[in-house]
Write a protein that binds this DNA or RNA. Structure first.
Lengths: 202, 202, 202, 202
DNA sequence: TATGAATGAGACTTCATTCAT
DNA sequence: TATGAATGAAGTCTCATTCAT
């Protein structure tokens, strides 16, 4: 699918940028020379495919978010039962948080990559698509929960989406504040998050 | 209080940096010349008070977080009743989100200002203090809620803190995704957040 | 020969630096922008070939010393007879002193370019090579003098090297103190230097 | 004597500058703040006594040269006999070279402190005075040598001055090239220098 | 198409000098 | 007279971008 939208070189550049971010390099500190080295291409080649460094980075972030969401969707779908699906989501969050994936953080935070947004003309469209895809995941989980009668049916959809997002973000904050939560294990954090979600949605 | 900890010039520099962030400038893009212009001092003066630009910015962020928390505490304390206190908290969030206050976002997101952290030797200590101060606010609200019998007493404290944080973050996400929630008003978002909180804590 | 050791750009940079020093600019006062202008390259290019301004300048000085010594060797070798060879050496000194060649002065003075030394890891090795090359010149002259029976054979080599160096430095001081030696012509200074040398070595 | 020519503060500044140079700081790298710290005065005070940093440094160098020459004169006068007097001069050189005294090096080298010269309007006058004072020392030594019949009487004065200067510089070069003369002791260097001088002047 | 050497704008930082106290 | 906080000009160096190959 990506192959249709992006050329092989573009994807190589995206992967280089994402690899850098996984190494902990903050997007504002990424250098074109690093991207070229990581993607094993010449510096000039970046400019054959993108108008500027910022455009390359912002597109890479959006590309990665899409990939991440896609992968999350398939992993969650593969699980059976509401609880298992939700725990799979938390596992995905945990993996991403541990491995320093910046793009993912964008989804979990309020602020973010302002500087880069202005370089993507279709930013709103892309972000909208991401939200839609995430909502599809949420819908899938909610359906399962309703079927299992773990959650009620009557709620309005904004509330239900917000409930899942809230529970997920509550869990993700555990990683940022781990130093201050040393007596809490990651499992306990996950349980607390699930408990919150159930109470919110039953 | 701050007067004791920081010289007048340092505070002027902090305020210059914060003013820039409120204008929407991302901390990685702030220039020393901008700080100097905003604080109405010479560029060199910044270096009389801080060893580097990064040190100045990171200290400014922590300084601002402290101030924001302090102010939030007093505003929330001044309100009567659990619901009013919580809505005041959401009001504060809304104000801050609208006015682009980056430091605040740090509290609401998982990733953030890595690059700057290394410049603050007492970062962990400072961040710990912030978390403690926030927990004091949460404790104050929880006590009120328990008194009013809106929320139960039995919950473990990690869960209760997480519940508030989750509900708050769920609300704050509204601002990042407003474009995709055009049929939802800010009041409805606040109501949803409150509903979530009550269900989670009763 | 130099082509093997240094790239064309490096040599262009060296020549720019040397040109500046010939204009009378003291090495501590040389600016990167001046080097770039003189070498007709961009400022950034200097940093593609050297880690710092100091490294560029110190290497340029050593490069120039080598060149100067090399040239001196060939010019002296081309002359016949001890006296003519020594006068050729004095001519070389005179030319260099008049044209303000700083690198050369390093050889004639005790102090000098301390600050720059630390930037050349192989400084000792390089300097050692220079001293060796100068000694080869001295050996060549001494051999001729012995053949012509102008100078005795018995002296220890340190004394003989020192004698030539002293006579040369005595001559070179004439230029620094010309204002105070207005009744002495450059020829008289050369004669005095030669007389000293002959007396010291006969 | 100096007290008459220079105010106490000026001398404090001079001594601060000289102290820095003895520590190995090169005059081009001296900062006003260092001078003030070393002289234990405020930075602004330097400008109450000198028009610029350069003027202060260049005057300090000349001041120090005068002092050094003065001291050398008294120490040499106090010794008996030509040989002892000359060895005392070499001792003084050795002490100065070891302790990194830059001003002294100016006397022993051909190039030097160009940048600073332009800041001393009476530079020529001052330098002339120094040369005169050095010549007085040389005269004193030569007289003793003539009395002792170690040196002949007939030589022209430029040659005789040059001979002493050459022998002294020949000795001083030993320190710059000590690494390459590891089998030569300082005593041997002194003996060689004396031998050269005697041969040149007998 | 792909490269990477070269560029130079512009960032950070230093430090000589000023001037209110 | 003496100070040192404040300034901003000017320096070093980085790095996004270009372009000849």
């Amino acid at each position: 699918m990506d192959n249709i939208l992006y050329s092989e070189k573009k994807i190589a550049i995206f992967n280089g940028i994402i690899a850098l971010m996984r190494k902990g390099v903050n997007p504002y500190s990424i250098k074109v020379s690093d991207i070229a080295k990581e993607a094993d291409i010449g510096k000039g080649t970046v400019y054959d495919y993108f108008a500027s460094k910022e455009e390359a980075i912002s597109q890479a972030i959006l590309f990665n978010i899409r990939e991440e969401i896609e992968e999350a969707y398939y992993r969650i779908k593969a699980k059976n039962g509401f609880k298992e699906k939700y725990y799979e989501l938390l596992h995905i969050i945990a993996e991403r948080m541990e491995s320093n994936i910046f793009p993912f953080k964008v989804l979990l935070s309020a602020g973010g990559i302002q500087k880069f947004y202005e370089y993507i003309s279709e930013y709103k469209y892309d972000m909208c698509q991401h939200v839609s895809r995430i909502n599809i995941i949420y819908d899938h989980m909610l359906e399962t929960g309703v079927e299992e009668k773990i959650i009620g049916e009557e709620e309005d959809s904004y509330y239900r989406y917000m409930a899942i997002a809230s529970a997920v973000m509550g869990f993700s904050q555990y990683f940022g504040q781990r130093t201050f939560n040393q007596n809490i294990s990651i499992e306990e954090a996950a349980e607390a998050s699930y408990k919150l979600l159930i109470k919110a949605l039953n």
